[in-house]
């Protein structure tokens, strides 16, 4: 466990809790893409199938349970409890345009042609692009609430920190995970534009506005 990976996981947990906090306290899913949250649910379920078959550590299992349960809770809040506040008209990204390619790629590029490994690779590829509906929604609505931008910053930072972890592991342990690294770089690059807006606007106390 490198420091970067721990920082990455904590940033990930922060993001998930920030989102739950925002929806719960404002009793509103306004500005939040339900499709992104649905795909995150798929990401965690398909990645953590080994939750009951292989025990790595208490930390590992706890985080897996936390990620799965928090993402299910978030989807529940958006599509059921606060359904009336869900802004479906701006959440128009076609999920199948990312789910199908991720599945096809997982069938081609995986570590073993087994259900578990294909499911794991699918999860990794899907996670890389799962944020697209949310980023689309921010550009469509033209802005994002402050807490939503902090959520996105924490979420984008988690995989960026994992990249540092992978560099660290390659340097000290001499091996790396091509599928996770490739997808992790794509995932972090997709936040590029958002990070720019975040650092030039939100940090200076202004609202995140996507300039028309």
């Amino acid at each position: 466990m490198t420091l970067f990976r721990l920082a990455g996981d904590l940033s990930h947990v922060l993001a998930i809790l920030l989102l739950l906090y925002k929806i719960w306290t404002t009793k509103s899913a306004a500005g939040i893409s339900g499709k992104t949250q649905l795909m995150f649910c798929m990401v965690y379920v398909t990645r953590y199938l080994d939750l009951f078959t292989s025990f790595i550590s208490v930390y590992n299992s706890t985080m897996k349970v936390l990620f799965i349960s928090a993402s299910v809770a978030t989807v529940y809040l958006i599509y059921f409890k606060f359904k009336a506040t869900y802004d479906g008209n701006h959440d128009t990204f076609r999920m199948e345009f990312v789910i199908v390619p991720a599945l096809i790629l997982a069938l081609i590029w995986n570590y073993a042609f087994t259900f578990f490994e294909i499911s794991w690779a699918f999860s990794i590829f899907l996670e890389a692009v799962a944020i697209l509906p949310q980023l689309f929604m921010v550009t469509k609505t033209g802005e994002a609430e402050n807490i939503t931008s902090h959520y996105l910053f924490a979420l984008g930072s988690y995989r960026a920190l994992y990249i540092l972890n992978w560099i660290d592991r390659y340097y000290f342990e001499g091996h790396w995970d091509p599928i996770a690294v490739t997808a992790g770089i794509v995932q972090t690059v997709l936040y590029g534009d958002f990070f720019y807006l975040y650092f030039t606007r939100v940090i200076k106390g202004r609202k995140l506005q996507v300039l028309p």
Partner: peptide, 10 residues
């Protein structure tokens, strides 16, 4: 099959 490290990462 010595799987790469990814199975110990989240």
């Amino acid at each position: 099959l010595n799987l790469p490290s990814h199975h110990d990462e989240l």
